[in-house]
Design a protein around this nucleic acid. Structure first.
Lengths: 162, 162
DNA sequence: TATTGTTATACTCTATAACTATA
DNA sequence: TATAGTTATAGAGTATAACAATA
């Protein structure tokens, strides 16, 4: 990792560094990712003032809408949510009448997840609000092509875990 | 927002959507940003197993190293940390003997922040560990040019708040 | 009056262990 | 034995209000 001749390869990993090699925050990938992600989530929250919904709840409803009938554990795993933490999240969606647990056919341990009728209507409005939010983001990036480039780069970081 | 002729502009904001317009998570900017950021922070934490340090602590030490003497509130504001939350973070760095508060010259209310001698040595090692972490990221992206493209795209989202 | 640092507090998110009922 | 769902709990991270000292 640190052989001789290291000095001749300054700035190979990070961006501009001072004499001691301390990087400027503006050039650090993780720092920029965090700042951007916080801003995007804040815009998401603001966009859903009319229909209070957190990003995690949005992702659960969207996934159930697209692939109804999946087991609770499957939904949680696909979204990177621990199954223990998924319980109260799903409780909330059920309490609001948007989604429901049904006894799975074969396996009596598991629940399969579905939207309710009200949930379907909710998701329709949710998608409209989301599109406005996403369009703002795409515009700030400079267009759909830039959006695609950003996602392609993020996918390289995420790798096979996508 | 939703005029007639909307069907002819499908997928303008989001990526592939099903018949009801529900987006696939893999095409959502905020979702990808979150996943990537979590992975990067996890790799950061793993990289600092030898020298336990959280991302926020890293950013504070790096900022003090590059611009010593700034007020506590300035450091916090530049990093997007609420000053109330900055107190215990700084307490930790001071307790570990890495950084210190000094009475500011003019204003008796404020503290100016500096690294200790031990802090300088710590930062030197911290930078080495960080470079290995950052190099892994750059490699996964495909090179420094891709890193620059990613940061440029993130800066468009962040806008003037960077 | 306003600002700096601080305390206290609360809420969200995340992580782990242990329980139950099934398999 | 292992898995699905659940409960309880603890730790971060983050947000606001209020206070003392100082400007």
């Amino acid at each position: 990792m640190a052989g001789p001749g290291r000095q001749s390869k300054l700035e190979q990993a990070g961006g501009p560094a001072d004499a001691s090699g301390v990087p400027e925050m503006a050039t650090i990938i993780g720092y920029k990712l965090r700042r951007a992600q916080l801003l995007v989530f804040q815009d998401f929250i603001d966009s859903f003032a009319e229909l209070p919904l957190r990003p995690a709840e949005f992702s659960v409803l969207a996934l159930i809408a697209r692939t109804p009938g999946l087991k609770q554990s499957d939904i949680a795993a696909r979204l990177g949510i621990k199954r223990a933490n998924f319980v109260s999240l799903m409780d909330g969606l059920e309490r609001r009448g948007l989604a429901e647990r049904r006894k799975a056919a074969g396996d009596k341990r598991s629940h399969s997840l579905h939207l309710t009728e009200q949930g379907n209507r909710f998701v329709a409005r949710m998608v409209e609000l989301w599109q406005a939010h996403e369009q703002r983001l795409v515009d700030s990036l400079g267009g759909a092509a830039e959006r695609d480039r950003l996602i392609a780069l993020l996918d390289r970081i995420i790798g096979a875990k996508g």
